[in-house]
Each structure stands twice: as structure tokens, then as C-alpha cells.
Design a protein around this nucleic acid. Structure first.
Lengths: 221, 221
DNA sequence: ACGCTCTTTTGAACACGTTCAAGAAGGAGA
DNA sequence: TCTCCTTCTTGAACGTGTTCAAAAGAGCGT
């Protein structure tokens, strides 16, 4: 499928992706049927399935694009040195970038929760997007003034990505105007995270953190 | 729909539920088509839709049954006084009860992320099941030897339910034999929670917890 | 120009969840 | 019994995502 394609074939494929993204944005998830996408791209239904294994792969393209946009929007967050500022910047920029797609975001993330679906953020197929997203949080940690134990700082980016997934879940269910409640959540959550991480240097807390990290690592291996 | 039904109609309805649960268990989610359920129940396809608004409502019945089973299985956990033992009992009993449906559980969890679906654990329609589940964690807290600030102990059951949802998400993605990894997660998580909660009495941690509770309450209101 | 082969394209067909107009069954009042 | 109304039941039909055998196109050696 991703093998050598004629220049013309490559063009057809790109046209289908474009048509799909256009319809997802303008019509939403439900109305963007495979037949509508094929029509919009000016090809037959069968051709769509020649280039893509199914609707999910088309949605993956949309998902990837969103990830790229998030990365670009988060860039300004790294101007600051304070960890809290950097983290807030990364988290808020997601809400900014994803806002236009909030209405069908739910329909979209439905597939993401299916463990057998390649669209799941935990799937092998999503590894590139997941790694790109985690990299944002890694930059938020590593470029900052934050001082934490090496063991924790190594796991922190992935833990923050996990927290981000929780925020996204909240965002999906948030029907307040402009996702105001999600923004409130982030505004309150970021200082809590900041203070919590710094508290890990306390002797009494440290043992707890070490055990937590040990658990995470034993589950990953 | 839930209005007065003839005795015979009630029987038909029950027969459809039975057939659905039977097929969900034996064939899984995908193979349990609405036509197969209708056949198994010995009625027409249309009749199935006369009693149930759709496949989701049938799955809701399955979900409710699972919740009832979990409640029954968790009962033995409340023999012990230690908070950690009680919490572990509640969490482990879910894995025990849900194990036969692990394959199907993933398909089910698809709907959890869809805010428009009544099957979402956060939906208004799921409120009874959610409350029943939260009650298990409330009993784990309130009957135990745990001493925490009143403000926290009030929110703790719901927070533990949220943690349970996280464990369920892990469970759904856990393809190890007998969900061994999920059991490892619970075994490691419970002591961490136990110690974390007790740490909230530390002056330095207390302020953090108060702010966290304040955030939760401001988001709920 | 002619075959030959690989790539690309097509539209019919399938099973699914869901809807719906129409009919069957059952009881209440005459 | 007959009539009327509500409750229950039915199977055809629609639009969906997906599959597939067959046709069309594109390059290439002869």
C-alpha cells in the first residue's frame, strides 16, 4: 500500500486525503461517509478502499494532522523557563488547536478507546503520534528550571502525556462554551502538578515516588 | 417503552435480553448481531426494536448485570478493617467478575469516550450504575480504619471510582493471560493509594490536597 | 502494433444497524 | 358475536462500511 506508487496514483491518494479532511471539518464525522469522500475526491468508492484499508485509516490522517498542528502551536510555550508555564502552554495549545473539531471530537475519539482499533492512542500504529506528543511534554520538562530525581524525570514526560489524555477525555465531555471548563481544569491542574513534582524531594514522599516508578517500569517490561 | 406491558410482552422482552446476554457471552460483540439476537430469542428483527431503542440499550443491560455481579463479588472485601485490604478487594473482584467478558469488554469500552452515547460512564443514563459502583468505594473508605480530613473523605469515593475507571481502561488494553498485568497493577497501586492518602495529613501536602479538592468542586458546580 | 504483466479503477454485492408502514392479536364495550 | 382501539409483531427497505471479481489503463519488450 505504502509501496511504490505512480505519480498519478500518489496524486489520487492525496486527493482522497484532502477530500476526507475537508469533509470531516465541514460536515463532521457522521456525514463524511466513504461514498461522500469518494465523490468529493472525484473517484469511485472502490478506489478509496484501494488506497486506504478503511475509514479508520482516513481518520488517522486527520489525527496526525491535528498532532502536527498541536506541535506548531505549542512552540511558543518553550520561550519561558518556568516548568509550570511550559506545561500550561503545551496543554492550552491543544484546546486552542482542537476547538474547531470539538463537536465531532466525541465521535472521533470513540474509535480511539477501542483497544483493537489502530486509532487507539495506545496502539502500535499510533506510536509515532504518541511519541510526537510525548516529545512536547519532554521539552516542557527538560528545558525548564525543574529539578527532580533522575528516575522521575525520565518517566515524567510519559506520565504527563497520560495526564494529557485525561484532559482530552474531559475536553471531549466538556460542552461549555469555548471549552471554558477544560481551560479551568488546566489552569488549576498545572500548579498542582508543578507543586506535586517539587514535593517529590521530600524524604517521606520520595519512597512513595520510587515505588510508583518501580510499578510503572515493571508494567511496561 | 418501560410503560405497562402485557405479561406476555414482558416475557418477550425478557427473552430478548436473555438471548442478547447469551450471545454476547458466547459469540462476542461482533457476532451478536441484532438479527442473531432476534433469531435466538425467536422473534422478528422488528420486535427487538419495539422493546429496545437499539443495540446500545441491549449492551446497557449487559453492563448493568456486570455491575450487579461486581457488587456481589466485592461483598467479601468488607470483612476486613484495613483500608488497603478493602480497596484491593473491590478492585480485584472486578477483574474476577469481568474476566469472562474481557474480549467483549474492549468493544464495549468504545462507547465510553463518546460523550453523546448513553453508555458513557459519565452520561446521565449511566448515573445509577455509576452511583452503585461509587458506593462500593465509599464502603471501602467509610468502614475502614482510615483517618483523613473530612473534606477529602467526602470526595475520596468518587476519586477512587475515577481511578477504577483508569484501571478498567488498562484492563481493556491488557491482553496478558488472565489479565495478569492488571492484577499486578492493582497489587502495586493499592499500597500506593493507601500511603498517599495517609500522607495527606502532612502539613506540606495538606495545602496541595485542599487546592485539589477545591478544583474538583469548582469543576463540578 | 501487438501481447504481456502489473497497477489502478470500477460498480455490484454483502451484512450490518436502524426505520417504518402495515398487519395480527387481544381485549373491552355493545 | 361484532366493532373498535390499543398493543404487539412483522418483513421489506434504507444507508452504511466493506469486499471482490472484473475491467481499464499504463508501461515495456518484441
Amino acid at each position: 500500500m505504502a509501496d511504490k506508487l505512480t505519480a498519478k496514483a500518489e496524486q489520487t491518494r492525496a486527493g482522497i486525503v484532502d477530500a476526507a479532511l475537508r469533509l470531516f471539518r465541514s460536515e463532521g464525522y457522521d456525514a463524511a461517509t466513504m461514498r461522500a469522500i469518494a465523490d468529493e475526491a472525484g473517484v469511485s468508492l472502490g478506489s478509496t478502499y484501494y488506497y486506504f484499508s478503511g475509514k479508520e485509516e482516513l481518520i488517522q490522517a486527520f489525527y496526525d494532522q491535528l498532532q502536527v498542528d498541536h506541535g506548531a502551536a505549542a512552540e511558543t510555550a518553550f520561550d519561558r523557563a518556568a516548568f509550570a508555564d511550559r506545561l500550561r502552554g503545551v496543554m492550552e495549545s491543544f484546546v486552542d488547536v482542537a476547538e474547531p473539531f470539538h463537536d465531532f471530537g466525541g465521535q472521533f475519539f470513540r474509535n480511539a478507546a477501542d483497544p483493537r482499533s489502530p486509532l487507539s492512542p495506545f496502539s502500535a500504529e499510533s506510536a509515532p503520534a504518541r511519541e510526537a506528543s510525548t516529545a512536547l511534554f519532554r521539552r516542557a520538562v527538560e528545558g525548564s528550571d525543574l529539578k527532580v530525581a533522575p528516575a522521575l524525570s525520565q518517566e515524567l514526560p510519559e506520565l504527563l502525556w497520560l495526564l494529557h489524555m485525561g484532559v482530552v477525555l474531559f475536553w471531549v465531555h466538556d460542552d461549555s462554551e469555548g471549552q471554558r471548563r477544560t481551560r479551568t481544569l488546566i489552569a488549576g491542574l498545572v500548579p498542582l502538578v508543578d507543586r506535586s513534582v517539587r514535593l517529590t524531594r521530600l524524604p517521606l514522599v520520595r519512597g512513595l515516588v520510587d515505588d510508583g516508578i518501580g510499578l510503572v517500569r515493571s508494567l511496561r517490561g
